[in-house]
């Protein structure tokens, strides 16, 4: 565990906490894409199947369980408790266009052709694009609440910090996983436009509003 990875994990955790707090405090999930949240739940459940087969550390197990459980709680809040506030009309991204290619790619390009490894690879590919429905929703409504922007910034930073972690591990431990690195690059690049708007607008106290 190096500092980049720890900061990445913490950033990921902070993102989830911000999202849950936003929904809970405002009693509303307006502006949040339920489709992205479903994709994240699929990502965690398929990636962390190794909870049953491999033990890495208490930290590792704890975080995996937190990610799986909070993603399920989020889906419950959006589709049951605060369903009335959910932005159905704007959340129209077709997630099968992300799930199916990720699955096909995972079947073709993986480290090992076993069920658990293909599902791990699928989750890595799917995670890299899982934010697209959310970004699509923001672009459709043309704006995002500050709290949603903070959530997106923390969530986007997490894989960016992982990239630094992989550079570090390459030099310090001679360890690298090309699948994770390429997917992590794609994932971070997808956030670049948002990062720019976040730094130039939200951090200066303005609302995140897209140019008309």
């Amino acid at each position: 565990m190096n500092i980049f990875r720890l900061l990445g994990d913490l950033s990921h955790l902070v993102a989830i906490i911000i999202l849950l707090l936003k929904i809970w405090k405002t009693r509303s999930c307006a502006g949040i894409s339920g489709k992205s949240q479903i994709l994240f739940a699929i990502v965690y459940t398929t990636r962390y199947l190794d909870l049953f087969t491999t033990y890495v550390s208490t930290y590792n197990t704890f975080m995996k369980l937190v990610f799986i459980m909070t993603s399920i709680v989020t889906i419950f809040l959006m589709n049951a408790k605060f369903k009335a506030t959910y932005d159905h009309n704007h959340d129209t991204f077709r997630i099968e266009f992300l799930i199916l290619p990720a699955l096909v790619l995972a079947l073709l390009i993986n480290n090992e052709f076993t069920i658990i490894e293909v599902l791990w690879t699928f989750s890595i590919y799917l995670e890299s694009v899982a934010i697209l429905p959310q970004l699509f929703l923001v672009s459709k409504t043309g704006e995002a609440e500050s709290i949603t922007s903070h959530y997106l910034f923390a969530l986007g930073s997490y894989r960016g910090l992982y990239l630094l972690n992989w550079v570090y591990r390459y030099y310090a431990e001679d360890h690298y996983d090309l699948i994770a690195i390429v997917a992590g690059l794609v994932q971070t690049i997808l956030y670049c436009d948002f990062f720019y708007l976040y730094i130039t607008k939200v951090l200066k106290g303005k609302k995140l509003q897209l140019p008309a």
Partner: peptide, 10 residues
């Protein structure tokens, strides 16, 4: 890089 597929990251 060893070809073990244990993933120690999240």
């Amino acid at each position: 890089q060893t070809l073990e597929t244990t993933h120690d990251e999240l």
